[in-house]
């Protein structure tokens, strides 16, 4: 019974122009009797005629109206959906801030650790038993020409520990033009240990890098 509505309008036009057979006219008239909507439309077009141009323009107006939709929506700034999205966004922002802060502080700690390690590596830690015997106390201090490792091995070999026992000795001295330690003074250590260390220095290798040195000896 019901026809497609685009089919309807062409049918109405044909009916009003008298282009249909009597049987087809009867069919549409019956349909209109059952369908007041169709009946009213036919009555309306009977006066003015069917204008496809006007109908096309109306369709265009409808499409334009539908296209306005987004603007219409954006006016409703605070509907529940938008508020929900905003809340989630805020939460995410706060979370990412906290996360960023945590990562940053952890990195800072790691950096501190690295700095300490670098300082340690600048110290002449000898290999072997893992404990140093002699090291420089300042960066500006002169170093043995043979290197700290060899110097430590030399001291380990030549120290008469029976005389010294456990002790820490700090010696400061100047380096002569030939690299020999001169004017050796002590600031820490028992006299016997100081004397032993002085002998080790005087008999030991030549020095380079600076005209002054401050060396710590740890005897165990």
């Amino acid at each position: 019974m019901e026809m497609d509505n685009t089919y309807n309008i062409i049918r109405i036009q044909q009916y009003l122009r008298g282009e249909l057979t009597p049987e087809e006219m009867n069919q549409l008239e019956r349909q209109a009797l059952e369908d007041p909507f169709l009946n009213d439309a036919i009555e309306g077009y009977a006066v003015k005629g069917v204008s496809h141009t006007k109908l096309t323009l109306l369709q265009q107006r409808l499409q334009d109206r539908i296209a306005q939709q987004p603007q219409e929506r954006s006016r409703m700034l605070f509907n529940s959906q938008r508020l929900g999205i905003a809340a989630v966004a805020c939460l995410l922002f706060i979370l990412s801030c906290v996360l960023f802060w945590m990562i940053n502080t952890r990195d800072a700690k790691k950096n501190q650790g690295q700095v300490a390690l670098e300082l340690n590596t600048s110290e002449p830690i000898p290999s072997g038993n893992g404990l140093f015997i002699a090291r420089k106390l300042t960066n500006q201090s002169a170093s043995p020409v043979i290197g700290w490792e060899a110097f430590n091995t030399y001291i380990k070999k030549n120290t008469r520990t029976a005389i010294i026992g456990k002790d820490v000795v700090v010696l400061s001295f100047e380096v002569s033009e030939k690299g020999r330690p001169i004017n050796i003074t002590s600031s820490k250590g028992k006299p016997a240990s100081v004397k032993e260390a002085k002998i080790l220095l005087e008999k030991g290798p030549t020095w380079t890098g600076s005209n002054r040195a401050e060396i710590e000896f740890v005897f165990e």
Binding site: N8, I12, F37, D40, A41, I42, G44, Y45, L58
Partner: peptide
């Protein structure tokens, strides 16, 4: 089309 016809009526 039906509504337009109805309105015309």
């Amino acid at each position: 089309p039906l509504i337009y016809g109805l309105c015309l009526r």
